[in-house]
Amino acid sequence: MSKSIQSVQCEHLDKMDIVWDRPDTLIDVPMHYCPGCGHSVVHRLIMEVVQELNIQDITIGVAPVGCSVFSYNYMDVDMQEAAHGRATAVATGIKRVLPDKIIYSYQGDGDLAAIGTAETIHTINRGENIVMIFVNNGIYGMTGGQMAPTTLKGSVTSTTPTGRDLSIHGHPLNIAEMIAILPGAYYVTRQAVNSAKTVRKTKKALLRGFKNQIDGKGGVSFIEVVSNCPSGWKMTPLQSNKWLDDNMLGTYPLGDIKVPEKIA
């Protein structure tokens, strides 16, 4: 194989520390996601947290219907794949019969904030001691880029060919703010994965969420991750991450929305 750009070699790797490596809990297979898709990053972060907290043996995840439907092929924990929108009902069923296990649900915006809105609200309202991970890419990625409840005003999708018209399609749904008022919501935060900095913060948020559950804190730890969908947005990965910064975060500002006083 000939190479036009020479890659740099290192002679003394043995004298260096490995400061970052793929977590063992992330199954070593190529993921099916489009290049640059944030789902992959969120999967990896969850598995980093599972590994660091040493809870692989007691963790059960629930996959949604959406692009991340196959997430059990990557996250090396026991998993159940739920019907579209019902991940938190399934998670409830699991947590209620196995209260000592660590349960998380993983959902897209169509799954969590459209078809599954009732389950979302009531799971949180019951204060299930689980982690809910919400990947908000403002679009229906899996079905080919249709409008999601979180799609921004004016955004062109395959079902809003002239852009989302608020008078016809309603408004982008800020579900995190909505559910934060529920007593069953213990910790609500909105993060992103479009830069190293935001990835670090998302990791911290996930860590906090899982720790909450381990500590048996009453209520849901709700971690929204504003993410991209290069394919659905019809952008390159780099453009999508920039667009996320410039557009998504105006409607979905990052940061903690509800933090329990003791850990604030």
Binding site: V62, G93, V97
Partner: peptide, 22 residues
């Protein structure tokens, strides 16, 4: 056992799925 009144039959059957899956 555990009794839980669900928010709908849709939720109830999916809770059954989750618990039966265990």
């Amino acid at each position: 056992g555990v009794f839980l009144q669900a928010e709908s039959e849709v939720a109830a059957i999916n809770m059954v799925y989750g618990a039966a899956g265990c």
